[in-house]
């Protein structure tokens, strides 16, 4: 936790430009489904220390319940938390403007060419590594909760129902969330 690239201070209000650039990085580094989450956590929690691990997990939970691309939601919520509505605009602009323009131009050019096998293999290798990074990000988020048996049980259930039983995300959330919240309520009541 004491590497030089990690800031020890906790800036209350980072500049709009900093917020925008952070989400520009999240956008450009995140390849494949869920890739942005890896970078959003690394940049906003580990490197910049703009928000706590708990706030980040809160935001991810909230975004999973809302419609739309979750990672855009994370940009909106982190931006709002840091600088209010204008922060949300800065984060979303950083996330979208440049990456969309580059991606759109590259995409339209690619669509005019046939499927190149070398390109396909490179993309395949990147996706394999990206999948490992996403699993590791989930495990990292779990670290603060490993002492709570209920948390471990519900995290495992969520994992099993989606990865092995292959139920749709919304079904898993609606099915597990009330039980998990009830268990948490019971735990809190008992602790008082």
């Amino acid at each position: 936790m004491s590497k030089p690239d990690i800031k020890q201070s906790y800036p209350e209000h980072p500049s709009l430009a900093a917020v925008s650039i952070a989400f520009l990085k999240v956008s450009l580094y995140g390849i494949g489904g869920g890739g942005g989450l890896v970078w959003a956590r690394r940049i906003t929690v580990d490197q910049q220390r703009w928000i706590s691990e708990q706030d980040f997990a809160d935001i991810v939970s909230l975004c999973q319940f809302m419609p739309g691309p979750n990672i855009v939601g994370i940009a909106v919520c982190v931006g709002t938390r840091l600088r209010g509505a204008i922060g949300a605009v800065a984060a979303v602009s950083g996330f979208l403007l440049i990456p969309w323009t580059i991606g759109f131009i590259v995409g339209v050019l690619c669509l005019q060419h046939a499927q190149n096998p070398v390109l396909q293999h490179i993309l395949g290798g990147i996706s394999a590594a990206a999948a490992g990074l996403l699993v590791a990000t989930g495990l990292r988020m779990m670290l603060p909760h490993r002492g709570s048996p209920a948390a471990v049980i519900f995290a495992s259930l969520g994992f099993l129902l989606m990865a092995l039983a292959k139920l749709p995300l919304l079904i898993v959330l609606i099915g597990l969330a009330p039980l998990s919240i009830a268990a948490a309520g019971f735990q809190i009541a008992r602790a008082r």
Binding site: Q54, S61, S148, I153, A155, A163
Partner: peptide, 22 residues
Amino acid sequence: TVRRGLVPVTIGLVIASGTVMA
């Protein structure tokens, strides 16, 4: 209460999407 209940489920789903991608 809601937070303590929701967060673990969410984390399980993040790990699951990683393995689905894998």
